[in-house]
Computed example of a mutant assay.
Amino acid sequence: MAVSYSFVAFFNSISSSYSSSFSKPSLGSLKPHYGLRVDSKNSSRRLVLSCSSSHMDSNSDTMDIGQTQVSSTAPFGLTMSEANMSRSSCKWQRVLLKVSGEALAGDRAQNIDPKVTMSIAREVAAVTRLGIEVAIVVGGGNIFRGSSWAGSSGLDRSSADYIGMLATVMNAIFLQATMESIGIPTRVQTAFRMSEVAEPYIRRRAVRHLEKGRVVIFAAGTGNPFFTTDTAAALRCAEINAEVVLKATNVDGVFDDDPRTNPNARLLDTLTYQEVTSKDLSVMDMTAITLCQENNIPVVVFNLSNPGNISRAIKGERVGTLIGGTRNSMAART
Rank of each mutant, 00 (worst) to 15 (best):
F22M: 07
S21C: 00
S72K: 07
I14V: 10
D64N: 14
A74P: 07
R87G: 03
L36A: 10
A83R: 06
G66M: 00
L49I: 09
W92V: 05
S13C: 07
L47G: 15
E82M: 03
S17E: 00
D57E: 12
T68L: 01
S23L: 08
S29W: 07
A83P: 09
L78Q: 06
S52N: 12
K41H: 04
M56E: 08
L27G: 06
S88Y: 01
S53K: 11
G35F: 08
Y18W: 10
S6R: 10
K41S: 05
M85V: 09
K98F: 13
R37G: 08
L47M: 14
R45A: 08
S20N: 13
N59F: 02
A74H: 14
V95I: 13
S15G: 00
Y34F: 06
Y5I: 08
S23P: 00
P32A: 15
L49D: 00
N12Q: 14
R87C: 09
S19H: 09
S21Q: 01
H55N: 00
S52W: 00
S20Y: 08
A9L: 04
H55I: 00
V70N: 15
F10E: 12
K31C: 04
N12E: 12
R94D: 00
R37W: 02
S13Y: 05
T68C: 00
S21K: 07
S43N: 11
S60C: 12
C90D: 02
L47C: 14
V99Q: 01
S43W: 06
G28M: 05
V48D: 06
V38F: 11
R37M: 05
S40P: 15
G77C: 12
G101E: 03
P75H: 14
M80T: 10
M80L: 11
K41W: 01
Q93R: 15
H33T: 07
S86E: 04
N84A: 12
S6C: 05
T68P: 01
T73S: 13
S19C: 09
V70L: 14
D61Q: 10
T73M: 13
S60I: 06
N12M: 09
G66E: 02
D61S: 08
P32W: 07
L96T: 15
D64P: 05
L36M: 11
S89Q: 07
L78H: 02
D57Y: 01
S44Y: 04
F7G: 07
L97R: 04
R94W: 05
S4L: 14
P32E: 11
